[in-house]
Design a protein around this nucleic acid. Structure first.
Length: 399
DNA sequence: AGTCCACAGGAAGGGCAGGCGA
DNA sequence: TCGCCTGCCCTTCCTGTGGACT
């Protein structure tokens, strides 16, 4: 019973994790550092809800990992508590628009909202009007305020346009007893520029911007978390600083920094070390990076994967190669796998896309007499490309 | 100076899936 | 349920182009 021994040892092993959950993305700290200003501003805007007055609609901008969602949830939960203690009706609904099957269509979104109120509508079949009516009724059932938080709202407009906001912002006119307040959270800073001007003015009565954290702020946040997550002194000096530096380079994404710290801890734990050292962080960085690339590759369509596979076949033999060579290999792969062979024109576009995604480095060069073409090189290191090749082989051949 | 390679990349349109209103 | 519309993927056709070669 070797495996039992393994688990026994696993239990006995000293671990420096006190609480892994503190470093998970779902953890809610009781204090949010460096966001006091934004939190206060948002609190000022939302406070009227507690006096049964309608708060302004708010629009919140900021890149990923700048604490937008966390801050909003923080405020909302403390408002809920106060409302409860004072017998004020306040309902908050949080919806992440990025989730599939929740916000693919206007109908689904409204259906999801209805579900949040504890009622079900059939997943399809009713006219959209009808669903809106049910929603209005539910809203108006209680005298008070409903705060509707739409996270990753830019994803929603990408999918279903901005008409839905027009409908939602006009809801208040339909309501007699209650009122609704919209909070839109967007990762994109230019999001509202593409909105219908009418929607824009009513949706973003107030705007709050969450700037990226700088490296020092990320350090403080990481330090605070690591005190709770790890045993005293188990994180070697320099680790937090380097971790923060990585994340600051990626436009101040604190979520990434925390992820990285957690993975570093896991790497260290697995290697049997009693401390988290810089070498563990480096390995974690590679791992996180590799996962990102591989996940991106998996989610590509088959044709894209075939092209990528062609590139992986050439890249060990040549440092630099060209569109024509890739296309040639690609066609043989297609023949083997019985795929349609796309035109070179299309492959050219796919290569341009790969360049943007970071799978390849591409540059347009002229070889004089021998034409103008993309010069492609492989920026990923070998252990990633090998793994990628393996995964793509399965993905392409099994079809 | 002119040629010409091997593509880049724009424009237009075909074909298809999915959503929508009637 | 049906036709219509839209967006996406892809093809066809095309013009444009930097620089080695003649």
């Amino acid at each position: 019973m070797k495996i039992n021994n393994f688990f026994e040892n696993f239990l006995k092993k000293e671990t420096f994790f006190v609480s892994r959950a503190v470093l998970s993305s779902s953890y809610k700290p009781d204090q949010i550092l460096y966001r006091e200003e934004q939190i206060q501003e948002l609190a000022n805007i939302l406070a009227p809800a507690l006096r049964k007055e309608k708060p302004s609609n708010v629009f919140i901008y900021g890149k990923t990992g700048t604490g937008k969602t966390l801050s909003v949830k923080h405020i909302v939960s403390s408002m809920n508590e106060i409302a409860k203690n004072n017998q004020i009706y306040l309902k908050t609904v949080y919806i992440n628009c990025k989730l599939k099957k929740v916000a693919d269509t206007e109908y689904r979104l409204i259906a999801q909202l209805i579900k949040e109120f504890g009622k079900e509508v059939p997943p399809t079949g009713l006219p959209t009007d009808e669903v809106y009516n049910i929603f209005y009724e539910l809203l108006d059932a209680q005298e008070g305020t409903v705060i509707l938080i739409l996270d990753e709202i830019d994803q929603l407009t990408k999918k279903i346009g901005d008409e839905i906001f027009y409908n939602l912002t006009r809801v208040n006119a339909e309501l007699k007893k209650s009122q609704i307040c919209l909070i839109g959270i967007s990762n994109s800073l230019v999001f509202s520029e593409n909105l219908d001007p009418r929607v824009k003015s009513s949706l973003s009565e107030e705007e709050i911007i969450f700037p990226p954290y700088n490296a020092l702020q990320i350090q403080d946040i990481l330090r605070k978390r690591s005190i709770e997550a790890f045993k005293d002194g188990s994180v070697k000096p320099g680790v937090i600083e380097k971790c923060a530096a990585y994340a600051a380079r990626e436009h101040g994404d604190v979520r990434r920094a925390i992820d990285l710290l957690r993975v570093s801890g896991e790497v260290a734990e697995r290697s049997g070390s009693l401390f988290v050292e810089i070498s563990h962080l480096d390995e974690a960085e590679r791992k996180v990076e590799a996962d990102k690339i591989i996940n991106a590759a998996i989610s590509q369509p088959k044709q894209f994967q075939a092209v990528l596979y062609a590139i992986l076949l050439i890249s060990p033999q040549k440092k630099k190669f060209f569109t024509g060579e890739i296309y040639e290999i690609y066609t043989t792969i297609c023949n083997k796998c019985k795929f349609n062979v796309l035109t070179q024109r299309r492959i050219s576009d796919i290569l341009a896309e790969f360049d943007m995604l970071g799978f390849i480095n591409a540059e347009i060069v002229s070889k004089g007499r021998y034409g103008r073409t993309r010069e492609v090189s492989m920026p990923l290191d070998e252990n990633i490309t090998l793994k990628l090749k393996e995964i793509l082989e399965k993905s392409i051949h099994l079809d």
